[in-house]
Design a binder for these strands. Sequence first.
RNA 1: GCGGCUGUGAUCUAGCUGGUUAGGAUAGGGGCUUCCCAAGCCUCUUGCCCGGGUUCGAAUCCCGGCAGCCGCACCA
Length: 562
Amino acid sequence: MWEKVLAVAKRRGFLWPAFDIYGGLRGFYDYGPLGTELKKNIIEIWREYYVLTEGFAEIDSPNLSPEMVFRASGHLDKFEDYMTVCGECGAAFRADNLVSAENADSLGAEDLWYEMRKERIRCPECGGELTKPEPFNLMFRTSIGPKGKKERVGYLRPETAQAMFMDFQHLYRYFREKLPFGAVQIGEGFRNEISPRQGLLRLREFNMAEAEIFFDPEDKIWPGFERYRDDEVLLLPNTGDELQISLGDAVKRGIIKSEALAYFVGLTRSFLLKIGIDRKKLRFREHLADEMAHYADECWDAEVLLSYGWVEVVGIADRTDYDLSRHMEFSGENLKAVRRYAEPREVEVSEVVPDFKKLGPLFKGDAKKVADALRAMNSDTLKGDVALEIDGREYVVPEDSYRVEKVRKKVSGEEFIPHVIEPSYGIDRILYAVMEHNYHEIEEGGETYRILRLPAPVAPVKAGVFPLVPKDGLDEKARLIYENLRKARINAFYDDSGSIGRRYARMDEIGTPFCITVDYHSLEDDTVTIRFRDTKEQVRVGTDRVAVEIADLIEKGGCTAP
RNA sequence: GCGGCUGUGAUCUAGCUGGUUAGGAUAGGGGCUUCCCAAGCCUCUUGCCCGGGUUCGAAUCCCGGCAGCCGCACCA
Protein backbone atom coordinates (compact mmCIF):
# COMPACT_ATOMS: atom_id res chain seq x y z
CA MET A 1 0.00 0.00 0.00
CA TRP A 2 2.66 2.56 0.93
CA GLU A 3 4.46 1.83 -2.32
CA LYS A 4 1.36 2.93 -4.21
CA VAL A 5 0.89 6.03 -2.13
CA LEU A 6 4.54 6.97 -2.39
CA ALA A 7 4.50 6.28 -6.13
CA VAL A 8 1.67 8.77 -6.65
CA ALA A 9 3.34 11.17 -4.24
CA LYS A 10 6.53 11.05 -6.24
CA ARG A 11 4.95 11.16 -9.68
CA ARG A 12 2.65 14.06 -8.90
CA GLY A 13 5.08 16.18 -6.97
CA PHE A 14 4.28 15.63 -3.31
CA LEU A 15 7.52 13.96 -2.27
CA TRP A 16 10.87 13.28 -3.83
CA PRO A 17 13.83 11.45 -2.36
CA ALA A 18 16.36 14.14 -1.42
CA PHE A 19 19.75 14.29 -3.15
CA ASP A 20 18.29 11.97 -5.76
CA ILE A 21 20.74 12.78 -8.53
CA TYR A 22 23.58 11.72 -6.24
CA GLY A 23 21.91 8.46 -5.38
CA GLY A 24 19.83 9.74 -2.50
CA LEU A 25 20.35 9.47 1.21
CA ARG A 26 18.17 7.55 3.60
CA GLY A 27 16.09 9.52 5.98
CA PHE A 28 15.84 12.68 3.91
CA TYR A 29 12.99 13.75 1.64
CA ASP A 30 12.21 16.79 -0.44
CA TYR A 31 8.67 18.08 -0.43
CA GLY A 32 7.61 18.86 -3.99
CA PRO A 33 5.19 21.68 -4.82
CA LEU A 34 2.06 19.76 -3.82
CA GLY A 35 3.65 18.28 -0.71
CA THR A 36 4.86 21.68 0.40
CA GLU A 37 1.38 23.09 -0.05
CA LEU A 38 -0.18 20.16 1.79
CA LYS A 39 2.27 20.51 4.64
CA LYS A 40 1.61 24.23 4.80
CA ASN A 41 -2.12 23.61 5.01
CA ILE A 42 -1.75 21.03 7.77
CA ILE A 43 0.44 23.39 9.75
CA GLU A 44 -1.96 26.26 9.18
CA ILE A 45 -4.82 24.22 10.63
CA TRP A 46 -2.60 23.26 13.53
CA ARG A 47 -2.06 26.97 14.13
CA GLU A 48 -5.81 27.53 14.03
CA TYR A 49 -6.12 25.11 16.92
CA TYR A 50 -3.16 26.09 19.03
CA VAL A 51 -2.51 29.72 18.29
CA LEU A 52 -5.88 31.16 17.27
CA THR A 53 -8.23 29.08 19.39
CA GLU A 54 -6.08 28.36 22.44
CA GLY A 55 -4.26 31.67 22.29
CA PHE A 56 -0.85 30.09 22.75
CA ALA A 57 2.22 32.07 21.73
CA GLU A 58 4.30 30.93 18.82
CA ILE A 59 8.03 31.36 18.94
CA ASP A 60 10.83 30.47 16.57
CA SER A 61 14.28 29.55 17.80
CA PRO A 62 17.55 28.23 16.38
CA ASN A 63 17.97 24.66 15.21
CA LEU A 64 21.50 24.57 16.52
CA SER A 65 22.15 24.71 20.24
CA PRO A 66 25.25 24.82 22.40
CA GLU A 67 26.12 21.72 24.33
CA MET A 68 24.95 22.95 27.72
CA VAL A 69 21.32 22.92 26.61
CA PHE A 70 21.37 19.19 26.15
CA ARG A 71 23.40 18.59 29.28
CA ALA A 72 20.53 20.24 31.09
CA SER A 73 17.77 18.58 29.09
CA GLY A 74 19.30 15.18 29.66
CA HIS A 75 19.55 14.35 26.00
CA LEU A 76 23.31 14.01 26.16
CA ASP A 77 23.44 11.59 29.07
CA LYS A 78 20.25 9.69 28.54
CA PHE A 79 20.81 9.43 24.92
CA GLU A 80 24.38 8.47 24.77
CA ASP A 81 24.16 4.72 24.71
CA TYR A 82 27.06 2.41 24.30
CA MET A 83 26.68 -0.07 21.52
CA THR A 84 28.56 -3.29 21.12
CA VAL A 85 28.45 -5.38 17.99
CA CYS A 86 28.92 -9.10 17.50
CA GLY A 87 31.80 -9.87 15.18
CA GLU A 88 30.20 -13.15 14.13
CA CYS A 89 26.56 -12.42 13.40
CA GLY A 90 26.64 -8.62 13.40
CA ALA A 91 23.90 -8.18 15.96
CA ALA A 92 24.09 -4.89 17.87
CA PHE A 93 23.36 -4.51 21.57
CA ARG A 94 23.35 -1.84 24.20
CA ALA A 95 26.36 -2.72 26.30
CA ASP A 96 24.71 -1.58 29.53
CA ASN A 97 21.93 -4.10 28.99
CA LEU A 98 24.39 -6.98 28.89
CA VAL A 99 26.44 -6.44 32.02
CA SER A 100 25.04 -7.18 35.45
CA ALA A 101 26.56 -4.19 37.28
CA GLU A 102 23.83 -2.25 39.04
CA ASN A 103 24.86 1.15 37.75
CA ALA A 104 25.42 -0.18 34.25
CA ASP A 105 23.60 2.64 32.48
CA SER A 106 25.85 5.25 34.00
CA LEU A 107 29.14 3.54 33.08
CA GLY A 108 31.43 4.85 30.36
CA ALA A 109 32.93 2.89 27.50
CA GLU A 110 36.04 1.76 29.40
CA ASP A 111 34.12 0.60 32.45
CA LEU A 112 31.57 -1.26 30.38
CA TRP A 113 34.34 -2.92 28.40
CA TYR A 114 36.00 -3.91 31.69
CA GLU A 115 32.73 -5.33 33.01
CA MET A 116 32.06 -7.19 29.81
CA ARG A 117 35.44 -8.87 29.90
CA LYS A 118 35.16 -9.58 33.61
CA GLU A 119 31.83 -11.31 33.09
CA ARG A 120 33.05 -12.97 29.89
CA ILE A 121 30.02 -11.73 28.01
CA ARG A 122 29.57 -13.05 24.51
CA CYS A 123 26.93 -12.47 21.89
CA PRO A 124 23.52 -13.52 23.28
CA GLU A 125 22.47 -14.52 19.77
CA CYS A 126 25.27 -16.69 18.54
CA GLY A 127 27.97 -16.70 21.24
CA GLY A 128 30.37 -14.71 19.08
CA GLU A 129 33.01 -12.21 20.14
CA LEU A 130 31.71 -8.72 20.96
CA THR A 131 33.45 -5.46 20.10
CA LYS A 132 34.44 -2.73 22.55
CA PRO A 133 31.42 -0.52 23.28
CA GLU A 134 31.21 2.64 21.18
CA PRO A 135 29.26 5.71 22.27
CA PHE A 136 26.24 6.33 20.18
CA ASN A 137 24.20 9.49 20.41
CA LEU A 138 21.25 10.17 18.22
CA MET A 139 22.00 13.87 18.05
CA PHE A 140 23.99 15.44 15.23
CA ARG A 141 27.11 17.01 16.65
CA THR A 142 28.99 19.89 15.10
CA SER A 143 31.14 22.78 16.17
CA ILE A 144 30.17 26.41 16.43
CA GLY A 145 32.68 29.12 15.64
CA PRO A 146 36.20 28.93 14.19
CA LYS A 147 38.44 26.01 15.04
CA GLY A 148 40.54 26.60 18.11
CA LYS A 149 39.92 28.09 21.52
CA LYS A 150 36.65 29.78 20.65
CA GLU A 151 35.21 26.67 19.13
CA ARG A 152 32.20 25.29 20.95
CA VAL A 153 30.47 21.97 20.64
CA GLY A 154 26.96 22.26 19.28
CA TYR A 155 24.12 19.92 18.48
CA LEU A 156 21.20 20.07 16.15
CA ARG A 157 18.13 19.96 18.33
CA PRO A 158 16.31 16.63 18.59
CA GLU A 159 13.12 18.46 19.58
CA THR A 160 11.98 22.06 19.47
CA ALA A 161 10.81 22.02 23.06
CA GLN A 162 13.93 23.22 24.85
CA ALA A 163 13.68 26.78 23.53
CA MET A 164 10.29 27.16 25.15
CA PHE A 165 11.73 26.09 28.49
CA MET A 166 14.74 28.34 28.13
CA ASP A 167 12.47 31.26 27.25
CA PHE A 168 10.21 30.56 30.19
CA GLN A 169 10.88 33.85 31.97
CA HIS A 170 10.14 35.88 28.86
CA LEU A 171 7.01 33.90 28.15
CA TYR A 172 5.82 34.13 31.73
CA ARG A 173 6.14 37.90 31.59
CA TYR A 174 4.59 38.02 28.12
CA PHE A 175 1.52 36.28 29.54
CA ARG A 176 1.38 38.83 32.38
CA GLU A 177 2.54 36.25 34.91
CA LYS A 178 -0.60 34.20 34.74
CA LEU A 179 -0.86 30.45 34.43
CA PRO A 180 -1.79 28.39 32.60
CA PHE A 181 -0.32 29.52 29.32
CA GLY A 182 1.13 27.79 26.31
CA ALA A 183 3.96 28.33 23.92
CA VAL A 184 4.29 26.60 20.58
CA GLN A 185 6.96 26.12 18.04
CA ILE A 186 6.90 24.66 14.58
CA GLY A 187 10.19 23.67 13.08
CA GLU A 188 12.72 21.02 12.28
CA GLY A 189 14.13 18.42 14.59
CA PHE A 190 17.10 16.22 13.85
CA ARG A 191 17.88 12.70 14.93
CA ASN A 192 20.68 10.62 13.56
CA GLU A 193 18.63 7.47 13.23
CA ILE A 194 20.64 4.31 12.83
CA SER A 195 18.35 3.01 10.19
CA PRO A 196 15.71 5.31 8.73
CA ARG A 197 13.04 3.32 6.96
CA GLN A 198 9.63 3.48 5.47
CA GLY A 199 9.54 6.76 3.67
CA LEU A 200 8.41 9.62 5.84
CA LEU A 201 8.04 7.59 8.99
CA ARG A 202 11.61 7.78 10.23
CA LEU A 203 13.44 10.81 8.96
CA ARG A 204 16.74 12.22 10.09
CA GLU A 205 15.49 15.75 9.59
CA PHE A 206 11.83 16.13 10.28
CA ASN A 207 9.13 18.68 10.90
CA MET A 208 7.52 18.95 14.23
CA ALA A 209 4.93 21.11 15.87
CA GLU A 210 5.16 21.24 19.62
CA ALA A 211 3.23 22.97 22.34
CA GLU A 212 4.37 23.40 25.91
CA ILE A 213 1.58 24.23 28.31
CA PHE A 214 2.75 25.55 31.63
CA PHE A 215 0.42 25.19 34.56
CA ASP A 216 0.19 25.04 38.30
CA PRO A 217 0.63 21.39 39.36
CA GLU A 218 -1.90 21.90 42.15
CA ASP A 219 -4.51 22.89 39.63
CA LYS A 220 -4.83 20.42 36.79
CA ILE A 221 -8.45 21.33 36.18
CA TRP A 222 -8.51 22.58 32.64
CA PRO A 223 -10.73 25.62 31.88
CA GLY A 224 -11.96 24.56 28.43
CA PHE A 225 -12.32 20.88 29.19
CA GLU A 226 -16.06 21.04 28.47
CA ARG A 227 -15.32 21.30 24.78
CA TYR A 228 -14.04 17.73 24.57
CA ARG A 229 -15.55 16.16 27.70
CA ASP A 230 -18.09 14.09 25.80
CA ASP A 231 -15.84 13.09 22.91
CA GLU A 232 -15.54 9.35 22.59
CA VAL A 233 -11.99 8.18 22.09
CA LEU A 234 -10.36 4.82 21.63
CA LEU A 235 -7.92 4.39 24.48
CA LEU A 236 -5.31 1.73 25.08
CA PRO A 237 -4.15 2.17 28.68
CA ASN A 238 -0.92 0.51 29.77
CA THR A 239 -2.79 -1.47 32.38
CA GLY A 240 -5.56 -3.05 30.40
CA ASP A 241 -7.53 -3.52 27.25
CA GLU A 242 -8.56 -1.11 24.57
CA LEU A 243 -11.73 0.74 25.38
CA GLN A 244 -14.02 3.30 23.83
CA ILE A 245 -14.78 5.95 26.40
CA SER A 246 -15.61 9.62 26.72
CA LEU A 247 -12.78 11.84 27.89
CA GLY A 248 -14.83 12.98 30.86
CA ASP A 249 -15.24 9.40 32.03
CA ALA A 250 -11.62 8.59 31.32
CA VAL A 251 -10.57 11.29 33.78
CA LYS A 252 -13.25 10.33 36.29
CA ARG A 253 -12.06 6.72 36.28
CA GLY A 254 -8.42 7.77 36.53
CA ILE A 255 -7.43 6.26 33.20
CA ILE A 256 -6.09 9.65 32.17
CA LYS A 257 -4.70 11.33 35.23
CA SER A 258 -5.55 14.97 34.58
CA GLU A 259 -8.12 17.04 32.77
CA ALA A 260 -5.30 19.02 31.23
CA LEU A 261 -3.81 15.97 29.57
CA ALA A 262 -7.23 14.66 28.54
CA TYR A 263 -8.01 18.04 27.02
CA PHE A 264 -5.07 17.75 24.67
CA VAL A 265 -6.04 14.22 23.78
CA GLY A 266 -9.40 15.65 22.73
CA LEU A 267 -7.86 18.55 20.89
CA THR A 268 -5.44 16.26 19.08
CA ARG A 269 -8.23 13.96 18.04
CA SER A 270 -10.31 16.84 16.74
CA PHE A 271 -7.33 18.19 14.78
CA LEU A 272 -6.42 14.83 13.25
CA LEU A 273 -9.99 14.14 12.16
CA LYS A 274 -10.27 17.59 10.64
CA ILE A 275 -7.24 17.13 8.42
CA GLY A 276 -8.46 13.77 7.19
CA ILE A 277 -7.28 11.02 9.50
CA ASP A 278 -9.73 8.12 9.45
CA ARG A 279 -11.52 8.00 12.79
CA LYS A 280 -11.60 4.21 12.69
CA LYS A 281 -7.83 4.16 12.39
CA LEU A 282 -7.02 6.39 15.33
CA ARG A 283 -6.32 5.46 18.91
CA PHE A 284 -4.52 6.80 21.94
CA ARG A 285 -2.05 4.48 23.58
CA GLU A 286 -0.50 5.04 26.95
CA HIS A 287 3.23 4.49 27.17
CA LEU A 288 4.48 1.61 29.23
CA ALA A 289 6.58 2.67 32.18
CA ASP A 290 9.80 1.52 30.53
CA GLU A 291 9.20 3.17 27.18
CA MET A 292 8.56 6.58 28.67
CA ALA A 293 11.07 9.29 27.83
CA HIS A 294 13.45 10.27 30.58
CA TYR A 295 11.53 13.45 31.23
CA ALA A 296 7.98 12.14 31.17
CA ASP A 297 5.63 11.09 33.90
CA GLU A 298 2.63 10.12 31.82
CA CYS A 299 2.48 9.88 28.09
CA TRP A 300 -0.27 9.12 25.60
CA ASP A 301 0.54 8.67 21.94
CA ALA A 302 -1.93 9.30 19.18
CA GLU A 303 -1.44 6.34 16.89
CA VAL A 304 -2.82 5.87 13.42
CA LEU A 305 -3.24 2.59 11.64
CA LEU A 306 -1.22 2.54 8.44
CA SER A 307 -0.19 -0.22 6.13
CA TYR A 308 2.95 -0.36 8.27
CA GLY A 309 0.89 -1.05 11.40
CA TRP A 310 0.05 1.33 14.23
CA VAL A 311 2.32 4.35 14.04
CA GLU A 312 2.83 7.12 16.56
CA VAL A 313 2.04 10.54 15.13
CA VAL A 314 1.58 12.64 18.25
CA GLY A 315 2.98 12.25 21.75
CA ILE A 316 1.17 13.95 24.61
CA ALA A 317 3.42 13.87 27.63
CA ASP A 318 3.28 15.20 31.14
CA ARG A 319 6.85 16.44 31.49
CA THR A 320 6.16 17.58 35.06
CA ASP A 321 8.71 20.14 36.25
CA TYR A 322 11.61 18.12 34.87
CA ASP A 323 12.79 20.56 32.21
CA LEU A 324 12.39 23.78 34.16
CA SER A 325 14.10 22.23 37.19
CA ARG A 326 16.99 21.01 35.13
CA HIS A 327 17.46 24.35 33.41
CA MET A 328 17.32 26.08 36.79
CA GLU A 329 19.99 23.76 38.07
CA PHE A 330 22.29 24.14 35.06
CA SER A 331 21.80 27.85 34.39
CA GLY A 332 21.35 29.15 37.91
CA GLU A 333 18.36 31.18 36.74
CA ASN A 334 15.04 31.31 38.50
CA LEU A 335 12.42 29.63 36.34
CA LYS A 336 9.62 29.66 38.86
CA ALA A 337 6.15 31.09 38.78
CA VAL A 338 4.31 32.70 41.65
CA ARG A 339 1.04 31.47 43.07
CA ARG A 340 -0.53 34.72 44.27
CA TYR A 341 -2.72 34.73 47.32
CA ALA A 342 -6.07 36.40 47.13
CA GLU A 343 -4.89 38.71 49.90
CA PRO A 344 -1.28 39.27 50.87
CA ARG A 345 -0.64 37.34 54.07
CA GLU A 346 1.34 38.34 57.10
CA VAL A 347 3.63 35.53 58.00
CA GLU A 348 6.28 35.18 60.61
CA VAL A 349 9.54 33.88 59.26
CA SER A 350 12.87 33.53 60.83
CA GLU A 351 15.72 35.19 59.05
CA VAL A 352 19.44 35.24 59.38
CA VAL A 353 20.70 38.74 59.95
CA PRO A 354 24.45 39.08 59.50
CA ASP A 355 26.25 41.61 61.66
CA PHE A 356 28.58 43.49 59.38
CA LYS A 357 30.34 45.22 62.25
CA LYS A 358 31.77 41.86 63.15
CA LEU A 359 32.00 40.29 59.71
CA GLY A 360 33.68 43.22 58.05
CA PRO A 361 36.88 43.31 60.11
CA LEU A 362 36.95 39.52 60.17
CA PHE A 363 36.61 38.70 56.49
CA LYS A 364 37.45 42.01 54.79
CA GLY A 365 36.52 41.85 51.13
CA ASP A 366 34.90 38.41 51.48
CA ALA A 367 32.39 39.62 54.05
CA LYS A 368 29.60 40.02 51.55
CA LYS A 369 30.05 36.52 50.20
CA VAL A 370 30.00 35.11 53.68
CA ALA A 371 26.89 37.06 54.57
CA ASP A 372 25.09 35.83 51.46
CA ALA A 373 26.01 32.26 52.27
CA LEU A 374 24.70 32.72 55.79
CA ARG A 375 21.38 34.11 54.59
CA ALA A 376 20.97 31.15 52.29
CA MET A 377 21.20 28.70 55.17
CA ASN A 378 18.25 27.24 56.97
CA SER A 379 17.59 29.73 59.72
CA ASP A 380 15.74 27.22 61.91
CA THR A 381 18.71 24.91 62.40
CA LEU A 382 21.42 27.55 62.47
CA LYS A 383 23.21 27.99 65.72
CA GLY A 384 26.66 28.39 67.22
CA ASP A 385 29.79 28.87 65.18
CA VAL A 386 29.26 28.07 61.56
CA ALA A 387 31.80 26.53 59.22
CA LEU A 388 31.30 27.56 55.62
CA GLU A 389 32.99 26.61 52.42
CA ILE A 390 32.78 29.12 49.60
CA ASP A 391 34.62 28.69 46.32
CA GLY A 392 36.94 26.20 47.94
CA ARG A 393 37.86 28.45 50.89
CA GLU A 394 36.88 27.71 54.44
CA TYR A 395 35.42 30.31 56.75
CA VAL A 396 34.42 29.97 60.36
CA VAL A 397 31.71 32.41 61.34
CA PRO A 398 31.58 33.05 65.08
CA GLU A 399 28.27 32.81 66.89
CA ASP A 400 28.16 36.51 67.78
CA SER A 401 28.48 37.79 64.20
CA TYR A 402 24.92 36.96 63.18
CA ARG A 403 21.55 36.52 64.78
CA VAL A 404 18.37 34.75 63.86
CA GLU A 405 15.33 36.97 64.04
CA LYS A 406 11.66 36.37 63.74
CA VAL A 407 10.35 38.83 61.22
CA ARG A 408 6.77 39.54 60.22
CA LYS A 409 6.53 39.79 56.49
CA LYS A 410 3.88 40.46 53.96
CA VAL A 411 3.83 37.64 51.47
CA SER A 412 1.75 37.99 48.37
CA GLY A 413 2.29 34.52 47.04
CA GLU A 414 4.53 31.52 46.87
CA GLU A 415 6.96 30.37 44.24
CA PHE A 416 6.71 27.05 42.50
CA ILE A 417 8.03 25.38 39.41
CA PRO A 418 5.26 25.03 36.85
CA HIS A 419 4.51 21.67 35.35
CA VAL A 420 4.40 21.18 31.62
CA ILE A 421 2.16 19.21 29.34
CA GLU A 422 3.58 18.74 25.92
CA PRO A 423 1.67 17.69 22.82
CA SER A 424 4.30 16.99 20.19
CA TYR A 425 3.27 16.40 16.59
CA GLY A 426 5.30 14.68 13.90
CA ILE A 427 4.19 16.63 10.86
CA ASP A 428 5.77 14.36 8.26
CA ARG A 429 4.17 11.26 9.67
CA ILE A 430 0.83 13.00 9.91
CA LEU A 431 1.12 14.19 6.33
CA TYR A 432 1.88 10.68 5.14
CA ALA A 433 -0.99 9.26 7.19
CA VAL A 434 -3.38 11.79 5.71
CA MET A 435 -2.32 10.70 2.24
CA GLU A 436 -2.61 7.00 2.96
CA HIS A 437 -5.96 7.27 4.76
CA ASN A 438 -7.43 9.17 1.86
CA TYR A 439 -5.93 7.19 -0.97
CA HIS A 440 -8.52 5.18 -2.88
CA GLU A 441 -8.31 3.01 -5.92
CA ILE A 442 -11.29 2.29 -8.08
CA GLU A 443 -11.23 -0.29 -10.85
CA GLU A 444 -12.94 1.07 -13.91
CA GLY A 445 -13.01 -0.88 -17.14
CA GLY A 446 -9.80 -2.66 -16.28
CA GLU A 447 -8.09 0.59 -15.40
CA THR A 448 -7.11 1.76 -11.97
CA TYR A 449 -8.57 5.10 -11.07
CA ARG A 450 -6.93 6.84 -8.14
CA ILE A 451 -8.58 9.38 -5.89
CA LEU A 452 -7.02 11.22 -3.00
CA ARG A 453 -9.99 12.22 -0.88
CA LEU A 454 -8.29 14.98 1.04
CA PRO A 455 -10.53 17.28 3.06
CA ALA A 456 -10.84 20.53 1.17
CA PRO A 457 -8.99 22.64 3.77
CA VAL A 458 -5.79 20.60 3.41
CA ALA A 459 -5.94 19.89 -0.33
CA PRO A 460 -2.97 21.54 -2.05
CA VAL A 461 -5.02 22.59 -5.06
CA LYS A 462 -8.57 23.66 -4.26
CA ALA A 463 -10.03 23.92 -7.71
CA GLY A 464 -9.28 22.84 -11.25
CA VAL A 465 -10.60 25.21 -13.90
CA PHE A 466 -11.27 23.86 -17.38
CA PRO A 467 -12.88 24.90 -20.61
CA LEU A 468 -14.87 21.93 -21.87
CA VAL A 469 -13.00 22.42 -25.12
CA PRO A 470 -10.31 25.06 -25.61
CA LYS A 471 -12.04 27.05 -28.31
CA ASP A 472 -14.98 29.34 -29.08
CA GLY A 473 -14.03 31.58 -26.19
CA LEU A 474 -14.58 28.90 -23.57
CA ASP A 475 -10.87 28.99 -22.74
CA GLU A 476 -10.81 32.78 -22.27
CA LYS A 477 -13.75 32.57 -19.91
CA ALA A 478 -12.11 29.75 -17.98
CA ARG A 479 -8.88 31.70 -17.66
CA LEU A 480 -10.78 34.63 -16.26
CA ILE A 481 -12.36 32.44 -13.59
CA TYR A 482 -8.95 31.01 -12.82
CA GLU A 483 -7.51 34.49 -12.34
CA ASN A 484 -10.40 35.48 -10.10
CA LEU A 485 -9.95 32.44 -7.90
CA ARG A 486 -6.30 33.22 -7.42
CA LYS A 487 -7.12 36.81 -6.64
CA ALA A 488 -9.41 35.45 -3.95
CA ARG A 489 -6.36 33.56 -2.59
CA ILE A 490 -7.71 30.21 -3.67
CA ASN A 491 -5.10 27.91 -5.12
CA ALA A 492 -6.55 26.99 -8.53
CA PHE A 493 -5.14 25.10 -11.48
CA TYR A 494 -5.95 25.80 -15.11
CA ASP A 495 -5.90 22.94 -17.61
CA ASP A 496 -7.17 22.72 -21.18
CA SER A 497 -5.23 19.74 -22.46
CA GLY A 498 -6.68 16.42 -23.62
CA SER A 499 -10.18 15.26 -22.82
CA ILE A 500 -12.23 16.60 -19.96
CA GLY A 501 -12.24 13.19 -18.31
CA ARG A 502 -8.49 13.08 -18.24
CA ARG A 503 -8.35 16.47 -16.60
CA TYR A 504 -10.82 15.44 -13.91
CA ALA A 505 -8.77 12.31 -13.32
CA ARG A 506 -5.59 14.28 -12.87
CA MET A 507 -7.25 16.49 -10.29
CA ASP A 508 -8.76 13.51 -8.48
CA GLU A 509 -5.36 11.92 -8.16
CA ILE A 510 -3.85 14.92 -6.38
CA GLY A 511 -6.90 15.40 -4.18
CA THR A 512 -8.37 18.54 -5.71
CA PRO A 513 -11.88 18.72 -4.25
CA PHE A 514 -13.58 20.91 -6.86
CA CYS A 515 -13.44 21.34 -10.61
CA ILE A 516 -15.01 24.20 -12.49
CA THR A 517 -15.93 23.63 -16.10
CA VAL A 518 -16.90 26.24 -18.63
CA ASP A 519 -19.19 24.75 -21.30
CA TYR A 520 -21.30 26.13 -24.14
CA HIS A 521 -24.13 26.73 -21.75
CA SER A 522 -21.86 29.19 -19.98
CA LEU A 523 -21.81 31.42 -23.02
CA GLU A 524 -25.57 31.76 -22.91
CA ASP A 525 -26.38 32.29 -19.23
CA ASP A 526 -22.98 32.99 -17.67
CA THR A 527 -23.02 29.95 -15.38
CA VAL A 528 -20.43 27.22 -14.93
CA THR A 529 -20.45 23.80 -13.32
CA ILE A 530 -18.75 22.89 -10.09
CA ARG A 531 -17.92 19.20 -10.00
CA PHE A 532 -17.38 17.44 -6.71
CA ARG A 533 -14.49 15.04 -6.44
CA ASP A 534 -16.03 12.43 -4.17
CA THR A 535 -19.40 12.06 -5.87
CA LYS A 536 -18.78 13.41 -9.38
CA GLU A 537 -21.96 15.44 -8.93
CA GLN A 538 -22.20 18.78 -10.64
CA VAL A 539 -24.01 21.97 -9.78
CA ARG A 540 -24.29 25.13 -11.81
CA VAL A 541 -23.46 28.50 -10.34
CA GLY A 542 -23.18 31.97 -11.77
CA THR A 543 -19.71 32.86 -12.94
CA ASP A 544 -19.50 35.81 -10.57
CA ARG A 545 -20.40 33.54 -7.64
CA VAL A 546 -17.67 30.96 -8.23
CA ALA A 547 -14.96 32.32 -5.93
CA VAL A 548 -17.43 32.86 -3.09
CA GLU A 549 -18.96 29.42 -3.51
CA ILE A 550 -15.60 27.69 -3.57
CA ALA A 551 -14.39 29.60 -0.52
CA ASP A 552 -17.58 28.57 1.25
CA LEU A 553 -17.19 24.93 0.25
CA ILE A 554 -13.60 24.86 1.48
CA GLU A 555 -14.73 26.32 4.78
CA LYS A 556 -17.33 23.58 5.16
CA GLY A 557 -14.67 20.98 4.46
CA GLY A 558 -16.88 18.52 2.61
CA CYS A 559 -16.52 17.37 -0.92
CA THR A 560 -20.02 16.48 -2.00
CA ALA A 561 -22.72 18.66 -3.44
CA PRO A 562 -24.70 20.60 -0.83
C1' G B 1 24.84 -1.79 11.51
C1' C B 2 23.93 -7.31 10.07
C1' G B 3 21.33 -11.00 6.84
C1' G B 4 17.95 -12.08 2.60
C1' C B 5 15.73 -10.15 -1.88
C1' U B 6 15.98 -6.12 -5.43
C1' G B 7 17.66 -1.76 -8.68
C1' U B 8 16.10 -0.60 -16.92
C1' G B 9 12.77 6.85 -18.99
C1' A B 10 8.15 10.13 -14.37
C1' U B 11 5.47 4.94 -13.57
C1' C B 12 5.04 -0.48 -14.67
C1' U B 13 7.93 -3.64 -17.30
C1' A B 14 10.78 -6.81 -21.78
C1' G B 15 15.82 -7.83 -22.55
C1' C B 16 19.81 -10.20 -18.12
C1' U B 17 23.11 -18.39 -20.76
C1' G B 18 27.66 -10.93 -22.84
C1' G B 19 27.23 -9.27 -29.42
C1' U B 20 24.35 -3.64 -33.98
C1' U B 21 20.70 2.26 -33.03
C1' A B 22 17.76 -1.25 -25.17
C1' G B 23 11.57 -2.95 -26.98
C1' G B 24 6.58 -2.06 -25.10
C1' A B 25 2.68 0.11 -22.13
C1' U B 26 1.21 4.13 -19.13
C1' A B 27 2.37 9.14 -18.00
C1' G B 28 4.23 13.94 -19.99
C1' G B 29 4.89 18.02 -24.13
C1' G B 30 3.07 19.93 -29.09
C1' G B 31 -0.82 19.44 -32.81
C1' C B 32 -5.63 17.57 -34.72
C1' U B 33 -10.32 15.94 -33.01
C1' U B 34 -13.88 16.11 -29.15
C1' C B 35 -20.49 19.55 -26.00
C1' C B 36 -18.65 16.42 -19.16
C1' C B 37 -15.44 11.94 -16.50
C1' A B 38 -7.99 8.62 -18.20
C1' A B 39 -11.75 7.97 -25.97
C1' G B 40 -9.08 8.45 -30.84
C1' C B 41 -5.17 10.06 -34.53
C1' C B 42 -0.21 12.35 -35.68
C1' U B 43 4.31 13.78 -33.39
C1' C B 44 8.08 14.55 -29.84
C1' U B 45 10.79 14.05 -24.93
C1' U B 46 13.01 11.28 -20.86
C1' G B 47 16.33 5.30 -19.16
C1' C B 48 20.20 0.47 -18.04
C1' C B 49 21.56 3.41 -9.62
C1' C B 50 27.00 4.97 -9.08
C1' G B 51 32.22 3.50 -9.34
C1' G B 52 35.83 -0.09 -10.47
C1' G B 53 37.17 -4.84 -12.72
C1' U B 54 36.95 -9.05 -16.47
C1' U B 55 36.40 -8.81 -21.98
C1' C B 56 37.62 -7.08 -28.63
C1' G B 57 32.73 -5.94 -26.59
C1' A B 58 28.88 -5.34 -20.17
C1' A B 59 21.97 -3.49 -18.84
C1' U B 60 23.74 -8.66 -18.79
C1' C B 61 29.45 -11.62 -15.34
C1' C B 62 32.57 -10.17 -10.71
C1' C B 63 33.79 -6.62 -6.61
C1' G B 64 32.67 -2.20 -3.85
C1' G B 65 29.36 1.76 -2.80
C1' C B 66 24.44 3.97 -2.77
C1' A B 67 19.23 3.30 -2.51
C1' G B 68 14.57 0.37 -1.79
C1' C B 69 11.70 -3.79 0.45
C1' C B 70 11.59 -7.73 4.33
C1' G B 71 13.68 -9.74 8.95
C1' C B 72 17.09 -8.72 13.36
C1' A B 73 18.88 -4.72 16.26
C1' C B 74 17.86 0.53 17.32
C1' C B 75 13.92 4.25 17.77
C1' A B 76 14.46 10.18 24.13
